[in-house]
């Protein structure tokens, strides 16, 4: 499981763009508001991996994150 943030981009915007790229992640508090306060972030994006995920799909995730950065550049 990988929770992450992208500078200057709200996790819900990350989620919407990744969704468009065919990648499902969660975005938000994950029922853990105290953790968000602790790290000083409004929310996080969170990718979870399962036994059926492939390396190619991880590459797609990385490419999609690059796309998010491009859109908000």
């Amino acid at each position: 499981m990988l929770a992450f943030v992208i500078d200057e981009v709200h996790p819900h915007d990350v989620g919407t763009i990744l969704d468009q790229e065919g990648i499902a992640i969660r975005a938000g508090h994950h029922c853990a508001q105290p953790v968000m306060q602790h790290f000083g972030v409004p929310a996080t994006a969170r990718a979870s991996f399962a036994f059926y995920n492939t390396k190619e799909e991880v590459d797609q995730l990385i490419a999609a994150v690059q796309k998010v950065i491009e859109v908000f550049a």
Binding site: I17, Q20, V71, F72
Partner: peptide, 18 residues
């Protein structure tokens, strides 16, 4: 990407930034 660009249009991105 057409749907996406419809949501995140330049004007919206600009108002987000400034």
């Amino acid at each position: 990407m057409s749907e996406l660009s419809e949501l995140y249009q330049q004007v919206i991105l600009d108002h987000n930034k400034k």
